[in-house]
Write a protein that binds this DNA or RNA. Sequence first.
DNA 1: GTCTATAGCGCGATAGAC
DNA 2: GTCTATCGCGCTATAGAC
Lengths: 200, 200
Amino acid sequence: MTTGMHDSDVEAEVSSRSRFLDAALDLFVEHGYNGTSLQMIGDRLGVSKAAVTYHFKSKDDLIRAVIAPAFHELQELLDGAEAIKRESARRTHALDGYVDYLIRQRRVASWLSRDVAAIGHPVVYEPAQQLTGRIDALLIAGPHDEIAQIWGSAITQALTGPILNPVSISDGDLREQLLAIGHQLIRGHQAAVRRSTKSD
Amino acid sequence: MTTGMHDSDVEAEVSSRSRFLDAALDLFVEHGYNGTSLQMIGDRLGVSKAAVTYHFKSKDDLIRAVIAPAFHELQELLDGAEAIKRESARRTHALDGYVDYLIRQRRVASWLSRDVAAIGHPVVYEPAQQLTGRIDALLIAGPHDEIAQIWGSAITQALTGPILNPVSISDGDLREQLLAIGHQLIRGHQAAVRRSTKSD
DNA sequence: GTCTATAGCGCGATAGAC
DNA sequence: GTCTATCGCGCTATAGAC
């Protein structure tokens, strides 16, 4: 036990917020945010829907709590990567960290990539927009023209693809393939830039 | 006017099914299937929500009608591609056709890729599952092991990425970049297969 | 053939029992 | 502090006016 809580807190802790967050995320992944009712979350834990609105005063509060850890982790990664001066080292660090983030937070990441209702939610929209803009800027070299936008969205979507449907492969092997996918598309973008400047 | 309808049908035709389908798709793209009510669709066309359930007897019927043209087009493409004997020619034809499909049907394609509620809908789920399985099989060479699954999902997701957020680029230039992305990832997969067989 | 009116249901949220 | 009971709302779907 590495936390500082008392023995009497153990049972309360296990049956508390994190269980609700876990159940909610499971259901958001499967049915989407709008398709998941507080009733469904309560049923899964054997409590009433009122028990859910007790722990989280609204459904808005719940979605904020579910995404917070992933957004926080991604933000720290971006802060660290953006502090790196050399472009190629910065890009490599961002790709490594983003792949790690996707694997560690794959449930949240795959949910948000497939649920327009969640991304469009007032609580989620603006921070998500900002984070994706920053990761795009880190992964793509050169000016942010139309071609960079296209390849940038291709990279982030390509990295998300393999985490959508669980594959029977170790996290380490998955990481290796995701990095290969990222580097392959970064090279592809650079080649596309060379092609377009040559034809100018 | 290339259709055979009478002049008296013109006004009825313009204000009929296709207008409902177009408005519904617009709203599905923006708010998701569960986030779009019949009320919202009626409001956009200046009619009551009952007018929507008159043309389509249920919301299930509506989603079926919205996706039908895109699914039909994709199915014809797959039938044609699968009839090609030589693997590399089959793969090239599938990639070309799939990119054309994504550009022509970009609203439906980007909606379905971002709305778990729509993909999970009974009317959509099974045909969509079958179509994505077939396109994956066409685009990826060799045995369908874990690595093939990973790169297959990376390719289809990467191709979908650039159509999600409209970019100010012509369809022709977009097509060129999507083909480059597809070929780049197909080459990446082949290199990954060589790496993994060498290390066995 | 197209609409209004409304039924019937499930939702998120809350007041108050315990 | 945690639950039960319930409120008010918006949803899909339908019956029936026009």
